[in-house]
């Protein structure tokens, strides 16, 4: 099994606050990794560090992705190399047409890959096919990006972007939060369809439910800025029963 991303002794802070205190994590190609942990454990900071969010300052350690050290890369460079994050709270951008935004993003990626850009008609054909599969309303693609979308629609729109951009490394940051059971099923189905031997998923969640729909290959428990425990789905069962404290004295 080959490595997609290797995180070594990662220390990071937001402002003056040290949040990651030596994360070691190996994420494998074609696998689904679930990241769990109590509030404040550093789950969000870890994902922000991976995508290069400007709030997060890496003070020590490295992130190696596809054998390249990306620790200091610009966010857009990481994105073009195939790192994608489905945001927990997708931001609204008024006046920016959803379809136009997506075509710009896709063509930026195609340019990076040395492919010709898709014209408006080609793109629209692709987009319509995808939104049909996702069961989204077509008018959503003509609205302003995330503006006036319901919580569920915003999450679906993230999934739509993932399907269009076809990333290699996907972070799903609490994709399950705020979704009712039907929406959760829909989102999970879409994600399962995207599972391939070449694509890695990192699912950040508080709840077991989504892991019933998207079975993880590995579960990592984060606490206090470190990886406390790595294992399989059985860890989730233990957590359900005992809470995070069972791993504390290990």
């Amino acid at each position: 099994m080959s490595t997609m991303m290797k995180i070594k002794d990662l220390h990071a802070q937001i402002g003056d606050k040290q949040i990651l205190k030596g994360i070691d994590l190996e994420l494998l190609k074609g696998k689904v990794h679930a990241i769990m942990g109590p509030n404040g454990a550093g789950k969000s900071t870890l994902s922000k560090a991976i995508v290069g969010h400007p709030d997060v300052e890496v003070t020590k350690g490295t992130i190696v992705y596809k054998d390249k050290d990306i620790t200091d890369w610009e966010p857009e460079e990481r994105a073009l190399e195939g790192i994608f994050m489905a945001f927990q709270h997708p931001v609204e951008i008024p006046g920016v047409n959803n379809a136009y935004f997506l075509r710009t993003a896709l063509n930026a990626k195609r340019k990076h890959l040395g492919l010709p850009p898709l014209n408006a008609a080609e793109f629209l054909r692709l987009l319509k096919e995808k939104i049909k599969e996702l069961g989204m309303r077509e008018e959503m693609i003509h609205r302003s990006l995330n503006e006036g979308f319901s919580g569920g629609e915003k999450k679906l729109n993230e999934i739509l972007q993932m399907e269009i951009l076809e990333p290699d490394f996907v972070i799903l940051d609490e994709i399950d939060s705020g979704l009712d059971i039907d929406a959760l099923k829909k989102v999970s189905e879409a994600i399962n369809k995207m599972r391939t031997p070449d694509r890695t998923f990192m699912i950040i969640t508080h709840y077991r439910k989504i892991l019933d729909y998207i079975e993880p290959d590995f579960v990592h428990v984060l606490k206090n800025g470190k990886v406390l425990k790595t294992g399989g789905i059985e860890i989730v069962d233990a957590l359900e029963k005992e809470g995070y404290k069972i791993f504390e004295e290990v």
Binding site: P54, D55, P90, V91, I93
Partner: peptide, 26 residues
């Protein structure tokens, strides 16, 4: 906002193009 810019950059759009997109939208 930093968040709007970051959102677009996370999708592979260069920073100056992201600013332009937000301003045109506005």
């Amino acid at each position: 906002s930093e968040e709007q810019l970051f959102y677009l950059r996370q999708r592979g759009i260069k920073e100056e193009d992201a600013v332009s997109m937000i301003v045109h939208g506005f």
